[in-house]
Design a protein around this nucleic acid. Structure first.
Length: 764
DNA sequence: TAGACAGCGCATGGTC
DNA sequence: GACCATGCGC
DNA sequence: GTCTA
C-alpha cells in the first residue's frame, strides 16, 4: 500500500475505491485549488524518489477528492518536482479520480475548458485500457453500473418490511458496490508495463515554455503515443501516481490515460437538441430498467399516455412551435412595451371594466378580447377562478414553468412563488394571448412576464432563453438530476452538486451513500421508477386495494369506510406522479389510528415496501385551542389528519409461484402512494387541501387569511384571532346522504368561494 | 419603499 | 434528553 | 417578481 494511507479505510463511505486507490475519495468538498499546496507539510512526505520535473503542467482534478486527499496528491506531486498548475488552460496533464472519457471531458468543461477527443491511430494497448476503465460507465450497450448497484439494493429491500426504520446501511451499499467495482479500475500492477524509469521517457520540456515533445531518446517507448501532437491534453487516472509511488519510479502514463483530447473553443450557441439531454441522462441511468418496466406495464403503453416527462415536454415543445407563428401575425410591429407598461396599466384596468374594452384602445395593438371577470376585477386568488388543464397558452405556460424550475434549482423561493402566481394567472386566462398588454392585465403578471411573453411570441420556436437554461445549462441539469430524487430538495441538490461535486447518481451511490438520509436512499433506489407516470387505471387499482385493507381493519363498520382519490387524478390528469387517497369514516373513533392499521395491513400483504413518513398526530397542536366538544365518546375528539407516504409495489405477478425456486424477484414497478386519513368532521377540508394544484391550495390559505381572517389547513379551519375552530362542515361533518365532495362544497361555501370542480384547479 | 408571499408534521442534526 | 433550526413534501 | 400597506 502507499506510504501513507489517508483516512480510515473502513469509513462507511469509502465505497468501491478503498482497496484500489491511494487517495481516499470519500467526501469531496470541492475546493478549487486556489492556493498551491504547502511546500512542506507535516503530513507530507517523505521525499519520494520520483522525479517528475519534466512532466508537462499538471492539474489535479479535485472531483471526489476531499481537500485533504487533494492536498496530499498535490504534495506528492510537488515533492516530486512536478510542475503543478491551477489553471486548466495551462495544464497539459490532468490527474484525478476520473474513469470515463465523458466524465473527464465534463470535469474539464465545468472548469471552462472545452475539449474534443483525439483518437490515436495506434490505440492497441491504450484504448484497451481506456475502454476497460470506462466500461460500464459509458453508455454503450452495457447497462450502466448505477442501475446494477441500485437494483442490487432493491433486491435486498424487497424483503424489508415497511415498518423497518433502520437506515439502510452504507455497508449494504458497499457490498453492492463491490460487486461491480473491480471492472472500474485500471489494471492491477501486474499488468503494468515496466517503467521507463524517468519522466523524460515520455515528456520533455521545451525550454522555457512547458510544451510537450516527444523525447528524442525514446521515440518508441510510448509510441505514437507520447506526444506527436503538442496540443494534446491527457486526463490520467490517479492510479498512475499511486503505482509510480509504489514502484518507486515513474510509470508510463500510457496505460493510465482515460481521455486524450485537444482544447477547442467554447461552443457559442448550445444546440437546441440539448433540450432532450436531461431525458437522455435519465435514460442513461435506467435504460434496461426502463425497458423492463415498459414490458411489465403494458397498460401504460396501451393507454398511449406519456410515460415520461420528456414526452410531455416533447408535446409541449410541439405546441410551442405553433404558438409563435400564430402570434407573430399580431406582432408585425411592436412598440417598446416594457417602457410604457407602468402607466398604461392603471388605465387598462379602468378600461377593462367597460364593455368598450373590446374596441381598439391603442392604434398600435388593435383590440383585445374582452377580459374574463376575474381579470377585469383583478381577482387575485387562484381559488376564485376556474383554471382548466387545457389552456390556449400552454406553450407559454410551459416556458414559465421551466423558468420556475430554474428558480427552484437555484433555491430562490421567492422567485418560485412569483412565477407560480404568474403561471396560475396565465393558465386561467381563456384566450390565446396576442398582445403583451393582455399579459399585463393578469394578476401577478407585470413587466417581467410581459417581456418574457414578447420574447416567446417573437421567437422562432416558442421558447425563451431563461427557460432554455434548464436544459442547456450544465449546472442546472445536474441540479435537476439530484433535485428529482425524492427527499432531496434545492438545498441538498446544491450541496451534492456544487459542494461535493457529484455529477450523477453514480456519484451519490459511490461517494455519498452514507451521507444520504434514509428517504433519500430510497429515493435514489427508485429514482427511475418514481419518475414513471401512473395511469388512471393503475391508480384506481391501487385505491381499490387500499379500500379493501381499510375495510379489513375496520371490522366494526367496514361499510362506513369512504374513499376519495385526490391529487392529480382528481383534477383529471391522464397520469399522475403519485397516488393520493383520502380515507374517512363517519364515526370519529373509526378514523383514530386508522392509518397505522391500514399501513400495517398493507405491509402484511406486501403492498407497502417502505414507509417514507408517517404522520400520526396531524393536529395535536390544535388540541389546546380546540374546544372539547365533539368528544363523542372518542376521547379527546382530536382532529387528526394522519397520513402515510409510502412506497407501493403490487406483490402479485405472474410466475410468482415458482419464483422461490428461480430466485426471481418481484418485477412490478414501485409507486409512491399517499394515504390520508381524515376524521369525518373535517373531511371537506382534507378533500380541498389535497386536491391541489399547489397554487390553488396556497391561494385558498391566502384567501382564507386575507378575506376571512382564518387559518386554513387540510385538517381544519381556525380563526386567527380567537384561535377557535371554524366549523364549516357541521359539528359532526356532513350528514347522511352527503359525502366527501358535499363536505368539500360546504367548505367552499363557508369560505365564500364559488365551488370549483377539481379539474378547474389546474393551476400548474 | 419595505415587507409578505401557506402552513403544517416529520426527519435530521446541532447545541446545551 | 430536551430543545431548536433547517430541510423536506405535500 | 409582484402586490400592497
Amino acid at each position: 500500500m502507499a506510504p501513507r494511507t489517508l483516512r480510515d479505510p473502513s469509513s462507511s463511505h469509502t465505497i468501491g475505491f478503498s482497496s484500489s486507490t491511494l487517495f481516499d475519495p470519500t467526501s469531496s468538498p470541492q475546493q478549487p485549488p486556489s492556493s498551491p499546496p504547502a511546500a512542506t507539510s507535516t503530513t507530507s512526505a517523505t521525499p519520494n524518489s520520483l522525479d517528475l520535473h519534466c512532466l508537462p503542467p499538471i492539474f489535479v482534478i479535485p472531483a471526489h477528492l476531499d481537500s485533504d486527499a487533494q492536498d496530499e496528491v498535490e504534495e506528492e506531486l510537488a515533492a516530486s518536482h512536478a510542475p503543478l498548475t491551477y489553471s486548466v488552460h495551462e495544464a497539459r496533464l490532468f490527474v484525478g479520480l476520473v474513469r470515463s472519457k465523458k466524465r473527464a471531458a465534463l470535469e474539464l468543461r465545468t472548469r471552462g475548458l472545452w475539449t474534443e477527443e483525439v483518437v490515436r491511430e495506434d490505440k492497441s494497448v491504450q484504448e484497451e485500457v481506456k475502454e476497460k476503465v470506462s466500461r460500464g460507465r459509458e453508455g454503450g450497450s452495457e447497462p450502466p453500473r448505477k442501475r446494477v448497484k441500485v437494483d442490487g439494493g432493491v433486491a435486498k429491500e424487497d424483503v424489508e418490511t415497511a415498518s423497518e426504520t433502520e437506515v439502510e446501511t452504507a455497508s449494504e451499499a458497499s457490498e453492492t458496490e463491490s460487486e461491480s467495482a473491480p471492472s472500474d479500475h485500471v489494471p492491477a500492477e501486474s499488468t503494468i508495463e515496466p517503467s521507463k524509469g524517468n519522466a523524460e521517457a515520455q515528456y520533455a520540456v521545451d525550454g522555457s515554455s512547458v510544451q510537450l515533445q516527444p523525447h528524442p531518446k525514446s521515440p518508441a517507448e510510448d509510441p505514437p503515443g507520447a506526444l506527436q501532437f503538442q496540443d494534446h491534453l491527457r486526463v490520467i487516472s490517479l492510479d498512475w501516481l499511486r503505482d509510480s509511488l509504489k514502484a518507486g519510479r515513474v510509470m508510463s502514463v500510457g496505460k493510465y490515460v482515460v481521455y486524450e483530447c485537444r482544447a477547442i473553443e467554447k461552443p457559442t450557441a448550445p444546440q437546441r437538441q440539448q433540450t432532450l439531454i436531461p431525458r437522455q441522462q435519465i435514460q442513461k441511468v435506467i435504460p434496461a430498467r426502463k425497458a423492463q418496466i415498459a414490458a411489465q406495464h403494458p397498460q401504460s403503453q396501451r393507454q398511449q399516455q406519456p410515460s415520461s416527462s420528456q414526452q410531455i415536454l416533447d408535446r409541449a415543445r410541439a405546441d410551442a412551435g405553433e404558438g409563435p407563428r400564430v402570434n407573430q401575425r399580431y406582432h408585425p410591429r411592436r412598440t417598446g412595451l416594457a417602457l410604457d407598461v407602468k402607466k398604461p396599466r392603471s388605465q387598462l384596468l379602468q378600461q377593462t371594466t367597460t364593455p368598450e374594452d373590446a374596441s381598439p384602445t391603442n392604434a398600435d395593438s388593435g383590440p383585445l378580447p374582452p377580459p374574463p371577470d376575474w381579470v377585469a376585477q383583478h381577482v387575485k386568488y387562484a381559488c376564485e377562478r376556474s383554471t382548466p388543464a387545457d389552456t390556449p397558452n400552454a406553450a407559454f405556460v410551459e416556458q414559465l414553468k421551466r423558468i420556475r424550475l430554474a428558480r427552484e434549482l437555484r433555491d430562490d423561493d421567492i422567485g418560485v412563488r412569483a412565477y407560480s402566481t404568474s403561471i396560475a394567472a396565465v393558465a386561467a386566462y381563456p384566450h390565446e394571448i396576442r398582445a403583451a398588454r393582455e399579459v399585463l392585465r393578469l394578476p401577478g403578471c407585470s413587466e417581467k412576464i410581459a417581456t418574457l411573453w414578447r420574447e416567446f411570441s417573437g421567437s422562432e420556436d416558442g421558447t425563451v432563453a431563461e427557460a432554455r437554461e434548464v436544459d442547456d445549462d450544465e449546472t442546472l441539469r445536474t441540479l435537476r438530476l439530484f433535485y428529482n430524487i425524492w427527499g432531496v430538495g434545492a438545498k441538498a441538490a446544491r450541496h451534492f452538486s456544487l459542494d461535493k461535486g457529484w455529477k450523477d447518481l453514480d456519484d451519490a451511490v459511490e461517494f455519498g451513500w452514507g451521507q444520504l438520509s434514509r428517504v433519500q436512499q430510497i429515493g435514489v433506489k427508485f429514482y427511475d421508477e418514481f419518475a414513471e407516470r401512473i395511469p388512471r387505471s393503475e391508480t384506481e387499482h391501487i385505491v381499490q386495494v387500499v379500500r379493501e385493507h381499510a375495510r379489513r381493519v375496520c371490522p366494526v363498520d367496514p361499510d362506513g369506510i369512504e374513499i376519495l382519490i385526490v391529487g392529480g387524478y382528481r383534477r383529471g390528469a391522464e397520469t399522475s406522479g403519485d397516488v393520493d387517497v383520502i380515507v374517512s369514516h363517519r364515526k370519529l373513533d373509526a378514523t383514530m389510528n386508522l392509518v397505522e392499521d391500514i399501513v400495517a395491513a398493507l405491509e402484511q400483504s406486501g403492498y407497502i415496501t417502505h414507509t417514507l413518513t408517517l404522520s400520526l398526530q396531524g393536529t395535536s397542536r390544535g388540541q389546546a385551542t380546540l374546544p372539547f366538544r365533539s368528544s363523542n365518546g372518542a376521547g379527546l375528539g382530536f382532529d387528526t389528519l394522519d397520513k402515510a407516504l409510502v412506497v407501493w409495489q403490487d406483490p402479485e405477478w405472474p410466475g410468482k409461484a415458482s419464483a422461490a425456486e428461480t430466485n426471481a424477484k418481484n418485477p412490478n414497478i414501485h409507486r409512491r402512494v399517499d394515504i390520508i386519513v381524515s376524521p369525518w368532521r373535517t373531511v371537506g377540508c382534507a378533500a380541498l387541501g389535497w386536491s391541489g394544484g399547489t397554487t390553488f391550495q396556497r391561494d385558498v390559505r391566502r384567501y382564507a387569511q386575507a378575506v376571512k381572517g382564518w387559518k386554513f389547513d387540510s385538517s381544519g379551519i381556525r380563526d386567527r384571532r380567537t384561535g377557535k375552530v371554524v366549523d364549516l362542515e357541521g359539528p359532526d361533518g356532513v350528514g347522511r346522504g352527503e359525502g366527501i365532495v358535499d363536505a368539500e362544497k360546504k367548505v367552499f361555501e363557508g369560505l365564500g368561494l364559488v365551488y370549483r370542480e377539481p379539474w378547474e384547479r389546474c393551476t400548474g
